[in-house]
């Protein structure tokens, strides 16, 4: 029982970073109803920018975090211009496929620029874990969970309290009405991508700072975690993205403890599979999926 609770706590804390990745996917999906497969690789560019600043100037954590955000934002704008703005009126699948192509391009470019593959990333904290009774808390995980919670609160405020958030929600709920209300959809979309880039960069910084190392495979890893968490929570749902991330973290932590590391990812995919079969709308199923199903039924 103690193990279970310990895994639950660890899973929730790690899951908070998955939730941030899922939120990034969800913001982009909300603005465009499209998947950006290159979201993880853009974040990977960010963490390599962070590492570069760390290695060259032995910069502190704040500077590394800033470099991560800037790198991720630049890569995201590149992806947005190339794969999304350019084929705005084309089929959704065109964006998805081209974002996959740009992913390969980004991964190759980073591999060429950083030939050693594995690079050190500064630790979030080197303090020893805190013990509360028989439970222990890794400081990196605690920092991760607190920062992630703060990011979610700020995101909530942006979406619900600002005009930008209002416009983004308007675009996601009814793009046609948004356009005739005078909302500049391309501008709002680009800003949604930038917001997602910053959130993803924070997640990447927290994760890399916990692992203390990065490789160009980080892009693949982040895209997969974010996509699974989003699918578990429900495509396009903000609370769903958070719940999905936390659920994924807990499933991973429990299966790693009880079944072994080699089963961790397998269990995550199994849970995703079960959801897709039994509850395709995810935890907080939204309109998007039901509409598709209705459309399919009518055909």
């Amino acid at each position: 029982m103690l193990d279970f609770v310990q895994n639950l706590i660890d899973g929730l804390m790690v899951g908070s970073s998955y939730a941030l990745l899922a939120l990034g996917f969800t913001l982009i999906f909300g603005a465009m109803r499209r998947l950006n497969l290159s979201y993880g690789p853009s974040i990977m560019v960010g963490v390599f920018a962070g590492t570069l600043v760390h290695m060259q100037y032995s910069a502190g954590l704040i500077a590394v975090a800033a470099a991560t955000m800037i790198g991720s934002a630049i890569a995201t704008v590149y992806v947005e211009r190339l794969c999304f703005a350019a084929v705005r009126s084309g089929a959704a699948v065109a964006s998805m496929v081209s974002s996959f192509a740009v992913w390969m391009q980004i991964e190759e470019a980073v591999t060429l620029a950083f030939p050693r593959r594995t690079y050190a990333f500064p630790a979030l904290s080197d303090a020893p874990p805190i013990y509360v009774g028989e439970l222990f808390f890794r400081i990196e995980y605690v920092v991760m969970a607190i920062v992630a919670a703060l990011v979610m609160l700020v995101l909530y405020a942006i979406l619900n309290r600002t005009r930008f958030g209002l416009q983004l929600r308007a675009v996601s709920q009814n793009p046609v009405a948004a356009r005739y209300s005078g909302i500049n959809i391309p501008a709002v979309t680009l800003q949604a991508f930038l917001l997602a880039a910053v959130i993803g960069a924070i997640a990447g910084f927290l994760i890399a700072g916990t692992d203390q190392q990065i490789t160009p495979r980080f892009g693949l890893w982040a895209t997969i975690k974010g996509l699974i968490a989003m699918m578990l929570g429900g495509l396009g749902s903000i609370p769903g993205a958070i719940l999905g991330g936390l659920l994924l973290g807990v499933v991973e932590a429990q299966s790693q403890w009880y079944l072994g590391t080699e089963y961790r990812d397998l269990m995550a995919y199994l849970v995703l599979f079960a959801f897709l079969v039994l509850r395709p709308g995810g935890l907080m199923g939204t309109v998007a999926v039901t509409q598709d199903r209705e459309a399919a039924r009518r055909l």
């Binding site: 005009r163 930008f164 416009q167 005078g182 500049n184 709002v188």
Partner: peptide, 8 residues
């Protein structure tokens, strides 16, 4: 709606 969103 016409003003740039980031300024909002």
């Amino acid at each position: 709606a016409g003003a740039p969103a980031l300024s909002q």
